[in-house]
């Protein structure tokens, strides 16, 4: 931990409003966007972030500085979002990894040709339409996949921050990211094949 971080944490713990305002301003928009997409609705996202941040403020004395403030905030919002998903019974089962069905067990080669949509999609599907499909499909993924993609691709958090937020190892994160992208790719492919 740097001296600057130590000073910042001490100021937060003492209740320095300017430091709190600065920390919340820098992270607020990202936290709301993350919560909103975890929950799938804007109003609940705001409520969850509000509740999580008040809780962070009230329990800041428990922050030990082993992760960044940013991870601490994301973890608080993530935990509240999961509570809300559970409360609404919106859990979606992850199911089997679609990649398991693509290859022969023996030689490990493709069972059938990988359907081509990358070239077609890049050339023929409007860029905005492709973005719309990808983001729609992210929102439909099971939350265990959605949360890693939101943190990594959308919010742009680094590996260390994501691991601290989700309380998982770097190796576990790499597996989750790969499975999430694989599931997203399968969902996008399915949507494109219907068009």
């Amino acid at each position: 931990m740097t001296a600057e971080n130590r000073d910042q944490i001490a100021a937060l713990k003492s209740g320095d409003s300017e430091v709190w305002r600065d920390v919340l301003s820098r992270n607020g928009a990202g936290l709301i966007a993350y919560a909103k997409r975890m929950l799938g609705d804007y109003a609940s996202g705001e409520d969850v972030v509000q509740e999580a941040l008040v809780n962070v403020y009230r329990t800041i004395d428990k922050f030990d500085g082993r992760c960044s403030i940013k991870s601490w905030l994301y973890r608080a919002v993530r935990n509240k979002s999961i509570d809300e998903i559970r409360r609404k019974k919106n859990f979606v089962d992850v199911g089997d990894d679609p990649e398991n069905t693509y290859f022969n067990e023996g030689d490990g080669h493709w069972r059938e040709d990988c359907i081509e949509w990358d070239g077609r999609a890049a050339r023929e599907v409007e860029h905005k339409k492709m973005l719309r499909i990808v983001h729609d499909e992210i929102n439909k993924l099971p939350h265990v996949y959605r949360e890693v993609l939101l943190l990594k691709e959308v919010e742009g958090l680094g590996t260390e921050d994501i691991c601290a937020t989700l309380d998982i190892s770097a190796g576990n994160l790499r597996i989750k990211i790969h499975r999430a992208r694989s599931a997203l790719r399968a969902a996008v492919r399915s949507t494109l094949s219907k068009e």
Binding site: G15, S17, R21, L24, I32
Partner: peptide, 14 residues
């Protein structure tokens, strides 16, 4: 993201 409302709520307590 309209953070003003959320920010206002938290900062009121701070």
């Amino acid at each position: 993201a309209d953070f003003d409302k959320v920010m206002g709520f938290v900062m009121k307590e701070v």
